[in-house]
Each structure stands twice: as C-alpha cells, then as structure tokens.
Amino acid sequence: MIAASDAVEEQIDRETEFGFWLYLMSDAVLFSLIFVTFAVMSSNLASGPGGADLFDIKNLAMQTALLLTSSLTIALAHHATEGRNTTRAVVWLVMTCILGTGFLALEIRELSGFVAEGAGPGRSGYLSAFFTLVGTHGLHVTAGLIWALTLIVQIVLRGIDHRLLSRLARLSLFWHFLDIVWIAVFSLVYLPEFL
C-alpha cells in the first residue's frame, strides 16, 4: 500500500463523510415521502383493523428503549475507538448488535402477529403504508447490523486503524439517523393511536 500522507487521507475521509451526509439527505427524503403516504392513507382502513386495535404499548416501549439504548452504546463504541481501546470498542459494538437484534426481533414478532390476526399489509391501504414504513426502517436497521458485525470482525483482525475510525463514525451517524426516524415513527404512527 502506498503511504499516502495524513493530509491526503484526511481529505479522503472528509469527502467520504460529506458524501455520506448527502446519502442521508436522500434517505431522509425517501422516509419523508413514505411518511406523507402514510398520512394520506391513515384513515383508509377498508373496514379492517386500525392502529388502536392492533398496537401494544408495552411492545412499543420495549422497542423504543432498546433502540435508544443502542444509540448510546454505539456512541460509547465510537468513543472507545478514538481512545484506541480495542476490547472496549468490541464490547460496546457487540452490545449494540444485541440491542439492535432485540429491536428487530420484537418488530418481527409484532408484525407477524398482525399477519396472523389477518391484519397483514394486504388488508387495507392503511396497513400497507404501516408495514412499508416500519419495514423500511427495519431493513435499514438490518443493514446497520451487518455493517456493525463487519466492523467488529475488522477490529478483531486488524485492530483500530484510520479507516476503521472513519467507518465507525459513519455507522454511528447512520445509527443515530435511524433513531431519529424511529422517534418520528413512534410519535406519528403509534402515539396518536394511544391518545
């Protein structure tokens, strides 16, 4: 490998980070359009069940707690890598993965429960929009988990190097972004049904 100077590497990192911000903006537009669609369809129940009949506040609270905590653990992992503390970084990343997997497991349980009750995505426009919105978020979380696992392997194999720092910085940005999206899902999709 060529020993490119630090200045050059730093410039590459800054470009990559800027590109990643642009991607997040594009993704934010994507989520907003799905949110808008959900809003448009929120009363298209086709005489099927609505959110109030389906949602379980305990499940929601648990999901939210898991995801928010994982945002904290990933921040700690990021912090640990900056101090070049390999063990701690791995531990916090593994924690993040466990919490994220827990979130997904609850989500899958909830959604498959709806399907079993006959309230699947094909039941009504409202449920189509609901499943798509929550599912898109869930797919993003899945991608984030794969990303985190890859980084864990890289830390174990190669230790913490320059590239890893930059990758983890972007992963945690992504993870916080998903947190924000979840908060929007929480307050626009679920919460109104409990009020």
């Binding site: 669609t37 448009v40 369809m41 298209n44 129940l45 099927g48 995505p121 094909g122 426009g125 189509s128």
Partner: peptide, 20 residues
C-alpha cells in the same frame, strides 16, 4: 409501492382496499 401492490397484494394505489 407499485411493485408491492403488484407482488404482495398491498393497497397503495388500488381502487379497492383503501388505495389512493
């Protein structure tokens, strides 16, 4: 969304089932 309607039977843009 159109693909979801067509492939998984969702109701985003159908005439029935609460599509728009």
């Amino acid at each position: 969304m159109l693909a979801l309607d067509r492939t998984l039977g969702m109701h985003f843009f159908t005439n029935d089932g609460g599509g728009n």
